[in-house]
Design a protein around this nucleic acid. Structure first.
Lengths: 335, 335
DNA sequence: CGTCAAATTGCAAACGCTTACAACATTAAT
DNA sequence: ATTAATGTTGTAAGCGTTTGCAATTTGACG
């Protein structure tokens, strides 16, 4: 391994015959430098192939131009699309992204946040279905700003960007009810999670109520966010004589759909499905999945933009941003 | 924003009444410390809530325990599964991951690598379909070790981990030929890319040859790696009277399949498809996609493991690792 | 007790850069 | 020409660690 004798700021300073401070100034675009010396410094930098050492810079300036992203799993399309939005605007503002997968394990989430803090990140974006008490405490103990993307803290104390989950699932329920269904199932993650109990469930119930249907607890289902889980769950759902389902996750929805398919049932004729994440999965299957449309990329992008303001101590008027959602009618729903 | 008065190593040293060096030793698990003082230091660390500042540490030790990952797009299932393998073993060895999306743009790839270098990463994992000349030069100019994951440099000079692409597509072609097909299309990315010209195409031709079929250039197709591109391409493919296709990307394969479906053709009865990435996409559709099975997670994991050795100046016997691939027979293929 | 090697500790110099603050130079105004 | 402003540059003190080397302590042994 060839040891590149990387030039330091000292090298270019002595080469030009100016002080470190001057070189630092031109590197950082400080205007208080005479044009002619600026030019000379720039030339020297070019010749020496000087690249500022970001670590030293970080130590001296106490800014690392790096943010941390804590997420359940890069492999989950929903989150990876958020991550893409984050990354793009991060780059736009010249931040790098330190990525951590946690699989929604609060222990790992806590470790991740502490680790990011010790790496002196300038800010953190957190994603996950639930904010554990311990994690919340950790977030509070960190002095970098944290914003939630597509994630909810029950107390609404943290900056965040989301869609209106209760409105979205209410609409979904009503759509399906309008199609004539009397028994529509709701499948979400664990009911202890705020996003499920305080949002999806509430939307579901209010959709039922608005249409004079009674709430039946046996139509509530909880599953992991993966295809196999959905497939397994489908049997139980079908056993309740439900004829439609509102599903929190596209892979789960696909599992359900394929179970029906494999059982010789027709979707949407025998069973309607509305999913929630509108990832590529929803588009690529036949039938394609009708879905609540979430501006995933934008959720990430807006969260990151918000974080830049926070890191910069700018005022942000709205700390809990709600982005508009849409409704993507596709093939798992009659109309 | 509360300013956490974070304790420094100096604080704990003075609290215990030892020198910085001693604290540093216990923090770093250096054995030359008396058990009793070690205990006292540990206690003080606990009480003060001291967390080492990784930036300062990085500057002093010239190691950041951070690696860079350069990839086309987190949102691409193939790469995100590789990334997960990378991240898991990175964490295992206590490295953090700095992630950059490049969309395969050589300019951004170059910038990303240089940026990572200036952040003093200890190593880099690069993913992408092609290694641009300029990118190659940049890699050579960086003094951190770089390993390629699921990516090929034509000169085979860089450490890398892949599967045997020529064998894999050869097998796929032969399988389809055995099913009776006389005109099987090959769809890949740009033919200028080494992985296509020197691997996939070679495998394709050798599969043809082994079965006495002539090579017909009009059966070669090139597409972007997305669903829409596949759908569009499908019409042209069908127009050549091809009855089967070996496809480089699952989303593209899905596009082709759905085109056939929408045209009233049956897959696999009228048209067989074998895809190459075996991502979740391949499992989730009906019919599910027959695919070359790539150990994606392992490719990432092995690449990362290799990188740890390189960063540690350990010898690595095999610099160009080839992992075994499999063949996943599913529904887009007769048998 | 005295010796000497081994085990513990402390000292202080880096690491490469930012940034008050001070110093000097230049220009414009009087 | 003098003075005050303003513009440019240099000085040097950090930033929070690590680490080679020297100094000190400890313990075993004769």
């Amino acid at each position: 391994m060839q040891k590149k004798q990387t030039a330091t700021i000292y090298d270019v300073a002595s080469r030009v015959g100016v002080s470190l401070a001057t070189v630092s100034r031109v590197v950082n675009g400080n205007s208080n430098v005479r044009e002619s010396t600026k030019r000379k410094v720039l030339d020297a930098i070019e010749e020496l192939g000087y690249h500022p050492n970001a670590v030293a810079r970080g130590l001296a300036s106490k800014k690392t131009t790096t943010i941390g992203v804590v997420m359940p799993d890069v492999t989950d399309m929903y989150y990876s699309e958020l991550a893409r939005g984050i990354d793009d605007v991060a780059n736009m503002y010249h931040y790098d992204v330190l990525l951590t997968n946690t699989d929604e394990d609060p222990v790992r989430e806590t470790m991740a946040i502490n680790n990011l803090a010790s790496k002196q990140v300038d800010g953190i974006i957190f994603m996950g279905n639930e904010l554990d008490r311990e994690v919340l405490k950790t977030i509070a103990s960190v002095d970098a700003p944290v914003v939630l993307a597509g994630s909810i803290d029950a107390e609404k104390v943290l900056p965040s960007v989301n869609i209106d989950y209760v409105a979205a699932v209410k609409e979904a329920v009503e759509m399906v009810i309008n199609n004539g269904h009397k028994r529509v199932a709701l499948v979400t993650g664990p009911m202890e999670y705020a996003i499920n109990k305080q949002h999806r469930l509430v939307g579901y119930q209010s959709g039922l109520e608005a249409n004079g249907q009674d709430f039946d607890e046996t139509l509530l289902f909880s599953s992991h966010q993966d295809y196999a889980a959905g497939y397994q769950l489908a049997e139980k759902i079908y056993a309740t004589n439900a004829t439609a389902a509102i599903v929190h996750d596209d892979e789960v929805a696909l599992g359900i759909m394929n179970y029906m398919f494999d059982q010789g049932k027709s979707v949407p004729d025998d069973f309607e499905i509305i999913t929630s994440n509108d990832t590529k999965f929803a588009i690529v299957t036949r039938p394609a999945l009708t879905s609540i449309g979430q501006p995933k990329y934008d959720i990430g992008a807006v969260a990151m933009r918000m974080l830049t303001k926070l890191m910069n101590n700018e005022v942000v008027d709205n700390m809990q941003v709600t982005l508009p959602h849409t409704f993507e009618k596709r093939g798992t729903t009659i109309k």
